[in-house]
């Protein structure tokens, strides 16, 4: 016999592929990929989600952050009827509440502790992950009081502009780092949901 039987090789390959697929499927369902570090290309957003200055009328003071979950945009009000607009991904928690909050804490390269419901859905997740590249919380986090609400980065920039199952309001790491420098602790954050019918 020279070399392993073709059928054995085929069987082994099949086994490996199905392992990989089930792993990917398990991740795909809820989407978190701790440890994944996106390339610079992947960090570049489709123009519709890129940071840009837009016409924006508001009676809120410049510097106020207004999140429009339905649009998947976060606006930072500026003087002169303008706003700086960022594309965001909105997690399940992000759709649940509307009103006024304040930034209470800011953190660079935040640690990540997945809550119990998330562990239940994705049992392979680590119970704790230190901050850094590959962390689903991304490069920065802005915490909004004692609520579950937070604005943070992501290691999956392709989720910007979408509704995702977990997390709150996420921006790409370059965008969230940019936002981080602009808005101090104490900044008003207004969350607007689409009206219910």
């Amino acid at each position: 016999m020279n070399g392993p039987r073709p059928s054995l090789v085929f069987g082994a390959l099949l086994f490996l592929v199905s392992l990989g697929m089930s792993h990917a499927l398990a991740q795909g369902q809820d989407g978190d990929q701790p440890g994944y570090v996106p390339s610079a290309d992947e960090e570049e957003l489709d123009p519709r989600w890129q940071k840009t200055v837009v016409f924006y009328r508001s009676s809120e003071a410049p510097g106020t952050v207004i999140v429009h979950t339905n649009e998947r945009y976060l606006y930072v009000v500026q003087p002169g009827g303008r706003a700086l607009r960022y594309g965001i991904g909105v997690g399940r928690e992000g759709f649940q509440w509307q009103g006024l909050l304040k930034i209470t804490r800011k953190q660079e390269w935040p640690d990540w502790t997945p809550p119990p419901e998330m562990i239940e859905r994705q049992p392979y997740l680590p119970r704790f992950m230190a901050g850094g590249p590959g962390n689903p919380m991304g490069a920065r986090a802005l915490y909004l009081g004692t609520t579950v609400y937070r604005i943070h980065g992501t290691n999956q920039p392709q989720t910007i502009g979408t509704a995702v199952s977990s997390g709150c309001f996420r921006l790409t790491n370059p965008d969230v780092s940019d936002l981080y420098e602009r808005i101090p602790v104490g900044t008003k954050v207004i969350v607007r949901q689409r009206p219910e019918v």
Partner: peptide
């Protein structure tokens, strides 16, 4: 708008309570 090749932001053409007129 964003689902078209033109990609014009809403700007003025957003609802009055959402940033436009």
């Amino acid at each position: 708008g964003t689902n078209s090749p033109l990609g014009i932001p809403r700007g003025l053409n957003q609802i009055w309570s959402a940033g436009g007129i």
